[in-house]
């Protein structure tokens, strides 16, 4: 019995040591992906329009996924392969830092806090945070959320933002968008908040709900890569810029957002 008391400090020490170790090698990701002719992308699996797993073939599909495929071809050439790993808002940074994925393209906003631990490409999509409510809801915009319960997703920055606009809103965080949407439908909250692109996707899947009140933040999405991978970051930036010049970018915008009711997709066009 007495022996067991050693367990606690011992365990703590072991875990602290692992916590202090260097997590990633300093190899160049750009060299690695060129060698293997494959880029492994972290994408969303539950976000319609950006990254959603199609139950029929198990493939991720969406704007982020198509962007990743196009960027891959432009970096590695036409025979370059893009592989996809499904991530959530919560798991994407750890997966990147551990080297499970080379880059993340998963509705990820470029923020100063995130920039402290990872690097971003230039923005490839201009989102803004908004709210999704039931069509019969009395909530007109985010300002009406004081005293209401707002559903967000763990790991997304939208929860912080809502507190600035409506300080008395009660916020609950769920694991992913599917759960958050179900919770909204079950009446666990009065509104769901995140980026408008994601919300429009949810509105397409759930007809009784709509995006209200426009955007109240600017959320530039970026491709995330590990710190110090300047070569790879530059290659991504160059690829995105090329896509904007030759019109592939706008084609993808129209492909994914052209049919979304209420979404002014042409404002997203880039030249």
């Amino acid at each position: 019995m007495k022996k067991k008391f050693w367990l606690l400090p011992l365990l703590a020490c072991v875990l602290m040591l692992t916590g202090c170790g260097k997590s990633l090698s300093d190899q160049s990701v750009l060299d690695n992906v060129k060698e293997s002719n494959t880029i492994t992308w972290g994408v969303k699996g539950d976000v319609k329009l950006f990254g959603l797993i199609d139950v029929r073939d198990g493939q991720q599909k969406g704007f982020d996924v198509d962007m990743a495929k196009a960027i891959t071809k432009r970096i590695l050439g036409p025979k370059g392969k893009a592989e996809f790993v499904t991530t959530t808002s919560q798991s994407r940074i750890p997966l990147l830092k551990n080297g499970n994925v080379d880059a993340i393209i998963a509705t990820m906003t470029i923020t100063p806090e995130r920039k402290k631990i990872i690097s971003f490409s230039h923005s490839y999509f201009d989102a803004g945070q908004s709210i999704l409510v039931a069509k019969n809801s009395s909530i007109k915009s985010a300002k009406d959320l004081n005293g209401k319960t707002v559903i967000g997703v763990v790991g997304a920055n939208s929860v912080e933002n809502i507190k600035k606009i409506a300080p008395r809103a009660k916020v609950i965080e769920l694991q992913d968008y599917a759960q958050a949407m179900n919770a909204l439908k079950s009446g666990q909250g009065d509104a769901l908040t995140t980026d408008n692109g994601i919300l429009f996707g949810l509105a397409v899947q759930n007809p009784g709900y709509e995006v209200r009140g426009g955007t109240f933040t600017v959320e530039p999405y970026g491709v995330a890569v590990n710190k110090g991978q300047t070569g790879f970051t530059k290659a991504v930036d160059k690829a995105v810029l090329e896509m904007q010049h030759d019109g592939e970018y706008n084609r993808l915008i129209k492909k994914w957002f052209g049919d979304v009711p209420g979404f002014k997709y042409k404002e997203l066009y880039r030249r």
């Binding site: 916590g19 808002s89 919560q90 402290k116 790991g155 912080e160 965080e173």
Partner: peptide, 23 residues
């Protein structure tokens, strides 16, 4: 998983604000 505000919920929330999952 159901936003019950328990220890694990707080851990998720702290981890996603600090990006320091391990600690």
């Amino acid at each position: 998983f159901v936003a019950g505000f328990d220890l694990m919920y707080q851990a998720n929330s702290i981890a996603s604000t600090t990006f320091d999952q391990i600690n």
